[in-house]
Amino acid sequence: MAVQGAKGRATTGAAYAVASVAAVLFLIPFYLLVRNGLATDAEITAPGWRFLPETWRWENVSELFDDPAVPFGRSLLNSMLVAVLHTLGTLLVCSLAGYGLARIPYRHADKVFYAVLGTLMIPSAVTFVPSYVVVSSLGWVSSLRGLIIPGLFSGFTAFLFRQYFLNFPKELEDAARVDGLGYWGTFWRVVMPNSLNFTAAIAVITFIAGWNAFLWPLVIGQDQQSWTVQVALSSFLTSQTIRIHELFIAAAISILPLLVVFLLLQRWLVRGVAETGIKG
C-alpha cells in the first residue's frame, strides 16, 4: 500500500476487528455441536445460557451407537461406502472420457463432446424425478447401486478433465509414444501420475459432495438399511424420536470425516473450488 500512515493503521485495526467478529459468528455453530453433543438434555434445555456442560459426557458417544432405535452406525458405513465409491467411480469414468475427448482423434468426437456439453445445461437436482423413474425401473431403489451409479456420469467433471488434459504437456506423451506405449499405457503410466494435483482437487470436491448429498439419497434410501448419514440425521430431526444430545453428537460425528479432509487437504480443496467454481 502506498499510503500507510495513522489512517492506514486505523483501517487495519478495524479490518481485524470486523474479521474477528465474523470469525466468531462463523464458528458458533461448531461450538454448539460440541457443547450440546457432550451435555445432558437437562443442561441443553436449562434456562439461562451455560457456556460449557458441567462435565464432558463422552459416554454420549457410546450411548448413540448402542441405541437400538437409531441405526446410526449402519448409516455411517453406508455414507463412507457411497462417498468413497462415488469419488473413485467418478474419477475413473470422467478422467478416461476427458482424456479420450482431448487427445484421441475420432471422426465424431466433436458430436460426442456436444452431447456431454448439453448435459451441463440441465441441473441434476431438477431431474431427480426422471432419474428416479429410470432407477426404480431397474429395481435399484434402496440399494447401494442406486445410490452410487447414477451420479457417476458428471458432464461437468468430464468437461473439466478434458480442459485440463488439453493443456497437458504434449512432449511427455510423445516421449511415452516413442517408448512404445499406446494411448492406454500413456494415460496410466505418464499422464495420470503427472496429474495428481488436479485429480486430488477434483477428488476432494467430489468426496465432499458425495458425503453431503441429501435429496438423491432421500429419494433412493427408502428403507433404513440403505440410509446414508444425512438421511438418518434428517429422519431423527423430523421425527424427533431421539434425545437432543444424541442428535447433536450424531451430527458432530457425521462431520468429522470432512473436517479431517478440510484440515489435511485444504490446499487441494481451495484449488478444487477455484477450479470447479468458475466454468470459464
Binding site: A22, A23, F26, L27, P29, F30, L33, I208, W211, N212, F214, Q230, L233, S234, L237, A251, S254, I255, L258, L259, V261, F262, Q266, V270
Partner: peptide
C-alpha cells in the same frame, strides 16, 4: 474460519 462451514451438510 470462513471456509470451514462448507464441510457441513445442509442437514447438519
Amino acid at each position: 474460519a470462513f471456509f470451514i462451514p462448507t464441510a457441513c451438510s445442509y442437514v447438519v
